[in-house]
């Protein structure tokens, strides 16, 4: 570090303190909930003092051990959270793959077309990107009831793919712009058709951009509440609407800990995702900012 950028002690302390407070604020809620999910309700929501959640007095008294899996057992086994987990897996993976399959083609076409209408499609996509999802859902509900396709997974998957398209198109469009035009054009001079050029020249070099975009499609499908809660019937629910339905029914029965355990279970995959793909997530967010 050069002399010009060395920090005085006071500023350094202030920066460190601020950063420490932020990191605690960002991490502590998760840590606290994970810890609490292994306690009984009387500890995690203690009327006496939150210190009981740390010591686990009631957990010790009720279950004979400092930790209990009762919440997880109640959520996964008794309330069949595993079904919701499987549905989430199906929905998110399908949304990601279909989005990418049609999005790469569209994004590539937008990046290589010099015509005015390509620009207009991008602008329309920007407006669509801004539409609140729940307002679109209120448009789907009645037609879907009438067509009798409400409540099943395929409908939800296609709707999520469509809602995700504007973002996917923008992201992949700007990614394909960064691949030199000469690459596919020289392949076409050598006798390839446009599609052959795309398949043999562009596809091998497009994976970094596709993986980054795929991560965001995955997050959209995984995190969605508005669409999945309205368009899926009770037995087809994915994890997020299932958690929401826990709140309504279970709070009365005094089994809030099922919801806590389900929440922790739904958080774990996201942690793993960030752990492995941190670099791609950061570069994806930045790419949108710099070029979009």
């Amino acid at each position: 570090m050069s002399v010009a950028t060395r920090r005085p002690l006071g500023l350094q302390t202030l920066t460190t303190a601020f950063l420490a407070i932020w990191l605690i604020a960002a991490l502590f809620p998760f840590a606290w909930t994970v810890w609490g999910s292994f306690k009984v309700e009387a500890d995690f929501f203690s009327r006496q003092s939150w210190w009981m959640a740390i010591e686990g007095t009631r957990t010790q008294a009720q279950t004979g051990g400092p930790f209990t899996l009762a919440g997880y057992e109640g959520a996964w086994v008794r309330n069949e959270f595993w079904k919701a987990a499987i549905n989430t897996l199906i929905v998110t993976l399908s949304v990601t793959f279909i989005s990418l399959a049609i999005g790469t083609l569209g994004g590539y076409a937008l990046a290589r077309s010099g015509y005015r209408y390509a620009f207009w499609i991008l602008i329309a996509a920007l407006v669509f990107r801004a539409m609140p999802h729940i307002t679109l859902v209120s448009g789907y509900m009645l037609p879907f009831f009438e067509l009798n396709i409400w409540g099943v997974l395929p409908t939800t998957i296609i709707v999520l793919v469509a809602i995700n398209q504007p973002f996917t198109l923008w992201m992949l469009h700007s990614f394909f712009l960064s691949i030199p035009k000469d690459l596919d054009e020289s392949a076409m001079v050598d006798g390839c058709t446009r599609f052959q050029a795309f398949r043999m020249v562009i596809m091998p070099v497009m994976w970094p951009g596709v993986i980054t975009t795929g991560l965001f499609s995955f997050l959209l499908g995984y995190n969605d509440f508005a669409v999945t809660s309205m368009l899926l019937s009770q037995e087809n629910q994915t994890m997020v609407p299932k958690i929401a339905s826990f709140l309504g029914s279970i709070q009365n029965e005094g089994n809030v800990m099922y919801a806590v355990a389900a929440v922790v279970s739904a958080t774990v995959p996201l942690f793993i995702l960030v752990l492995f793909f941190q670099r791609q997530i950061v570069s994806g967010l930045t790419a949108g900012a710099v070029k979009g």
Partner: peptide, 26 residues
């Protein structure tokens, strides 16, 4: 134009059916 349309058709179809139409429906 033709190639462009073939490439972008699935995306456009999805957005027309599930974003534009719902707005009309609303």
């Amino acid at each position: 134009h033709r190639t462009f349309f073939v490439f972008i058709f699935p995306s456009i179809l999805a957005m027309l059916l599930f974003i534009s139409l719902p707005i009309v429906s609303v």
